[in-house]
Amino acid sequence: MREFRGQSLSWQLTDGVCELALHREPANEIGTALLAELEQFVAALDALQNDVRAVILYSRLRSGFSAGADLRELYRRMRGLTAEQRVAGVRQFLERIHAVLNRLDAAPATTIAAVHGVCFGGGLELALACDVMVADKMARFCFPELRLGILPGFGGIPRLKRDVGNAVVRDLLLTGRSINAQRAHAVGLVAQLAAEGQALAVARATAQQAAKFDSAARSRAKQFSKPIPYEELQREIAIFCELFARPAVEEGLRKFVESSAPLPYLP
């Protein structure tokens, strides 16, 4: 298979470059549907690894790259369950998304996230698994999870720590504020800035360049420069589950789901 058209995402492989488009309305929230198609994608990426030299992840939606985890689905699924059942369910989901992001992180091809609009929470965690982040200058980045009484759960802290200084990690995490693309570029989160509407074009040019290189050298360069923090990733799942068991999290999710505020991600 060299192309796929799903409900939440589609991809195609052309001349060594695989482009994956996210298109789950309204804002590419990552729930069970999108996760299942990401699992199919990373399995295909493994099968096609001799043919894929670069991968671009982008969004077809105006809203942006991704608003993060599907909190409405999470809230719907957790209602009526015991605390133990909730934690077991969320742990299973986290193990699955970590498996996907670890495989994307370790893929021998050069992976590029072309980001525009919102890149929040789980969406930022997806982008952080890529090798190079290209951002439209109107993009915004945010880890709002503490506002809900939880931490980023898709590998966000270990991968953010890998890319930027710890003071930046704490600023993003402990304030929950969103930063613009210029700031993200200045702190080293974003590799390349693009004009409005040009992130995909810049990512395509970058992919063409990356695809020229010898595959063995590219793969070894990735392994050497971008080690995957497996132990911290497992620790993150454990901390997330500890926090998730508390009633305050259900209350935080309820407020978010029922909010009609103009900026609903604010507490």
């Binding site: 105006r62 969103s178 613009n180 103009p262």
Partner: peptide
Amino acid sequence: RLDSLQALELLTRLEQ
């Protein structure tokens, strides 16, 4: 007539 995404756009344009 801003929605939440447009509010973020306004914030970004003001920052720029």
